[in-house]
Design a binder for these strands. Sequence first.
DNA 1: ACATATTCCTGGGGGC
DNA 2: TGCCCCCAGGAATATG
Length: 269
Amino acid sequence: MPELPEVETVRRQLHDRISGKTIREVLVFKTGRETPLGEKFVQAVVGRKLKGVERRAKVLVFRFDDGAILGHLKMTGSFVFVNKKYSPTKHDRMLFVFSGDTRLIWSDVRMFGYLKVVTPDELTAALSAYGPEPLEASVGALADRLQRKSMRSIKATLLDQTVIAGIGNIYADEALHRAGVRPTRATNKVTADERLRLAKDIKNVLTESLAQKGTSANDYIDTEGQKGGFLAFLRVYGRGGEPCRTCQRPIMKTVVAQRGTHYCAYCQK
DNA sequence: ACATATTCCTGGGGGC
DNA sequence: TGCCCCCAGGAATATG
């Protein structure tokens, strides 16, 4: 599922190919929760020129001079460049045709994702609540964000986009394993040293994954239809029952914060 | 105010 | 082979 490294990979590729281009045409195959819907969406974006593609948390920001389209892939969304001969398939939602005849398919099996047209004010409001970007903030700043009185699990805190932006289920489990902290631990019981380690390991795992163009545990593909290469480097996610890469004991699989959660009972206290 | 549960959606896999 | 059930999960919304 697309988290920060995957969304950032897609952002870079989109930015390289469509920034400065004008949206010439949009074909809508399946509407959903995008706002405005269908024809209104098309009218709101056709003819407008993209300044660039940015990212905040897991949200893609297709910038116009005045406002933007916000895009979220959620679990199964993808943007893939296609050629003129491409014919849409079952889960394709929209086709964007840009100046220069660059063609982009937005697809989403589970229909959770969205594209949303926003004004400059709405853009500011929509992005205001997110916590710091983990690849931009310092280790100290991130560690400070994790210092809170909350009794909820540290995993739930890591998944909270208003605490730190961009971490999802895969990298929450991975960072916790690297830091030696059990996902179920109450946030207010995580020590200052552990917060520092967690902050460092969040940056490390996101940086390493980004270098591999993300993790394709299930459906994720980039704009060239390619999978990310970080799956082979995962230490716990998706490895329930398999040996811990540190101590060889079996990885536990359970549910924390309503999410499948993987950890080593020996390495993570 | 905070914590937890529900909801959206579809494909894939296990059990029988 | 087919059918049923459960599971995957980001984050808004509802409930406690």
